[in-house]
C-alpha cells in the first residue's frame, strides 16, 4: 500500500531522515520516536507535502509527490493545529468535502462530524474550539471523503482522556474496516494501545520495526538504573549487592545508591523485604531510565 524506499532528507548539512525503507499495509501502524526524531519530516514526505532528497515514496504503486489525483484516496491530518478560525466546524468539513470532489458534501460533512462525535459544536466557529475539539473537527475533515489511507501526525495531541478513548475507538474501527492508518506519536503507551505494527524512528533512522510485542519484550529485558535514597546507604549497599536481580551498585557522593538491575520486577519485590529485615528506612526509589529517549537509546544500541 505505502512503500518508502531508501528515503533520505537533509536540510543543508543537517540530515533529518536517513536512508529509511519500509512497507506499510492495511491496519494501524504506529510511527514512534522522540521529539525531533524525524517523524514529521518522514510523514510529510510520505504524503507528498515535502520532497525527498533521495529515494522514493509510492502509494498504491504511484508516486505521491506532484500527484494530486492520489489525494482522493488519502486523508492526511498534519501536526499543525491552525484552522480557519472564521469558519464553523460544519463549514470547514464541508469545504474539505468540496475541494476533494465529494458528490454530496453536506451529507458527507454530517456523517464525518457524527463520526468524531462533535455534532453539538458543528455550528460554532472553529476559533472558539478547545484544542481537543479542533483536533476532532480536523479529523472529521480528514475522513470526509472516506479515504482508504489515513496519515495522522500526533492526532491525540490536546485530547483529554475521554476524547482520547473516543479517538482510539474510532481509529480501531477504521483500521478494522481494512483501511491503512499511519499515526505518529512520541508516547509509547499511546502507540501500544492502537498499533499492531510499529516503526521506531530515532535520530532520523529506522531503529526497529515489527509487532509491538517483540519491541515491548526487548524493552522488558533491558537493564534499568534505579536510584535509592535510604537511612543507611552503606548497609543497604552491602545487602542489596547480594540480590540476584542486581548487577551492580554505586554509592553517589550524596549517599544515594544507584543500582543496575536486569530484572526490575524482582527487585521491586526483594527490596522492601531486604529493607524490613535490616531495619533500613527507604526514603525514595526512582527509576533513572524511564524517559522515552533512554528507551529508544537502548533499542538503538542493542
Amino acid at each position: 500500500m505505502i512503500r518508502v524506499d531508501q528515503v533520505s532528507r537533509w536540510f543543508g548539512s543537517v540530515v533529518a531522515v536517513s536512508d529509511i525503507t519500509f512497507d506499510i499495509g492495511p491496519g494501524i501502524t504506529g510511527l514512534l520516536g522522540p521529539n525531533g526524531a524525524g517523524k514529521t519530516t518522514l510523514l510529510r514526505m510520505m504524503t507528498g507535502l515535502a520532497d525527498v532528497s533521495d529515494g522514493s515514496v509510492t502509494m498504491f504503486g504511484e508516486p505521491v509527490r506532484d500527484n494530486p489525483a492520489l489525494y482522493g484516496r488519502i486523508g492526511v491530518m498534519s501536526e499543525h493545529e491552525t484552522v480557519y478560525s472564521f469558519l464553523t466546524g460544519r463549514a470547514f468539513v464541508r469545504l474539505m468535502a468540496e475541494v476533494r470532489g465529494v458528490a454530496d458534501p453536506g451529507a458527507a460533512a454530517e456523517r464525518a462530524i457524527r463520526q468524531v462525535d462533535l455534532l453539538e459544536a458543528a455550528d460554532l466557529k472553529m476559533g472558539t474550539y478547545s484544542r481537543g475539539m479542533r483536533q476532532r473537527m480536523r479529523l472529521a475533515g480528514t475522513l470526509v471523503h472516506d479515504p482508504e489511507v489515513l496519515v495522522l501526525d500526533e492526532p491525540l495531541n490536546g485530547a483529554d482522556p475521554r476524547q482520547r478513548a473516543q479517538f482510539q475507538s474510532l481509529l480501531r474501527r477504521l483500521g478494522d474496516e481494512g483501511r491503512t492508518i499511519v499515526l505518529s506519536s512520541h508516547i509509547l503507551e499511546e502507540v501500544e494501545q492502537l498499533a499492531e505494527t510499529v516503526l521506531l524512528i530515532v535520530n532520523g533512522k529506522l531503529a526497529a520495526s515489527g509487532g509491538f510485542r517483540a519491541i515491548r519484550a526487548a524493552l522488558d529485558k533491558r537493564p534499568y538504573h534505579v536510584r535509592i535514597v535510604s537511612d543507611a546507604p552503606r548497609k543497604l549497599a552491602s545487602a542489596i549487592v547480594m540480590l540476584p536481580s542486581v548487577d551492580a551498585v554505586n554509592v553517589d557522593p550524596d549517599g544515594a545508591l544507584v543500582v543496575l538491575s536486569s530484572n526490575v520486577r524482582a527487585l521491586q519485590v526483594e527490596l522492601p523485604r531486604l529493607a524490613r529485615a535490616g531495619a533500613i528506612g527507604l526514603r525514595r526509589i526512582e527509576p533513572l531510565d524511564d524517559s522515552l529517549e533512554s528507551v529508544f537509546g537502548y533499542l538503538v544500541g542493542r
Binding site: 489525494y71 482522493g72 488519502i74 492526511v76 498534519s78 499543525h80 480557519y84 474539505m96 476533494r100
Partner: peptide, 15 residues
C-alpha cells in the same frame, strides 16, 4: 503563515 495551505494542496484539485 498559518500553515493551513496543506488543507488545499492535500486535495485532488489541479494546482
Amino acid at each position: 503563515d498559518d500553515r493551513t495551505l496543506a488543507n488545499l494542496t492535500l486535495t485532488p484539485l489541479p494546482r
